[in-house]
């Protein structure tokens, strides 16, 4: 414990001020604001993701037929792998979903 009157006075003043500040709602307002940023970001990403998924779903049959044509014209070695156009199209969409998830998790 210090006996310096200046230190004692400053400490007592800050303690009293801190006690008053503990009782207001600054922390709650602060955390709400922090949460709001996260919520807004999630909203934007979810909207963009939903839009992208709807677009991808609408293009699914087109992608499948395009892949079928590509696979048909491909070399026999690729055709022999047995990859169906449906599987490849689903794989592409899953890749896009994975990329969206990584962005959501802030890995990128």
């Amino acid at each position: 414990m210090s006996s310096d009157p200046v230190e004692t006075a400053l400490k007592a003043d800050l303690e009293a001020l801190t006690d008053r500040l503990e009782r207001d709602r600054f922390a709650e307002r602060m955390l709400f604001k922090l949460g709001a940023q996260r919520r807004a970001r999630l909203g934007v990403v979810a909207f963009a993701g939903g839009l992208g998924a709807a677009f991808a779903a609408s293009q699914f049959t087109g992608v499948v037929s395009a892949l079928a044509r590509t696979l048909g014209a491909a070399t026999p070695e690729i055709a022999m792998t047995g990859l169906s156009p449906q599987f490849l199209a689903a794989f592409m969409i899953a890749g896009a979903l994975l990329a969206t998830t990584l962005v959501l998790r802030q890995d990128f």
Partner: peptide
Amino acid sequence: LVRRHQARLRGF
């Protein structure tokens, strides 16, 4: 962390 430090930081 916010709740723990906010009052003292604001006081300072």
